[in-house]
Amino acid sequence: MAEADGATAAPRPDPDPDDVTWIESPVCQECGTSIRVYPTNYDRWVSLAMVELPAKDVPEAFRWRLTRLPTRSATPADIVAVRVRGIDPLPSEPVVPAHSMMCVPEWGEP
């Protein structure tokens, strides 16, 4: 299921609590652009694009949403990526595309 969804990213390392340096977004090894890496609702990790797009512009296999996990606190504790399935979103509804849809590998410089 994870391979079919494209949820094959490596988990992000836990930051050192004593390290106060800025944490940069991870970068795709293929194309060099920034990506967002989130856990899925089934304990895998997925690389997502940095932008949201209307559902009409994203093929069904690449549609994701970011959802807050329910907590008793008013402060959200964690966010997970959930594949958009079952009920199709409205064409103008924003979804987060999987990075694999937008990845254009660099072919090297001459």
Rank of each mutant, 00 (worst) to 15 (best):
98 A>F: 00
55 A>Y: 06
13 P>Y: 06
19 D>G: 06
26 P>K: 05
88 D>C: 04
41 N>G: 03
44 R>Y: 10
62 F>W: 15
2 A>F: 11
91 P>H: 01
63 R>I: 01
3 E>F: 15
62 F>S: 14
89 P>A: 03
40 T>K: 01
83 R>S: 05
20 V>A: 11
95 V>C: 11
19 D>P: 08
56 K>F: 12
81 A>E: 01
81 A>N: 00
31 C>G: 06
15 P>R: 13
51 V>Q: 14
41 N>E: 09
27 V>S: 07
30 E>R: 14
40 T>R: 03
36 R>G: 08
63 R>C: 04
60 E>F: 05
108 G>A: 02
87 I>V: 15
110 P>K: 06
89 P>G: 03
108 G>V: 00
82 V>C: 06
66 L>D: 01
67 T>V: 13
62 F>D: 15
63 R>F: 00
90 L>I: 03
77 A>C: 05
20 V>R: 11
101 M>E: 05
6 G>C: 12
87 I>D: 14
21 T>C: 08
80 V>F: 07
100 S>M: 06
53 L>N: 09
31 C>N: 06
81 A>H: 00
22 W>D: 14
23 I>D: 13
55 A>T: 05
79 I>N: 05
31 C>T: 03
77 A>Q: 07
88 D>H: 03
35 I>D: 00
68 R>F: 07
86 G>M: 02
14 D>T: 13
88 D>T: 08
25 S>R: 15
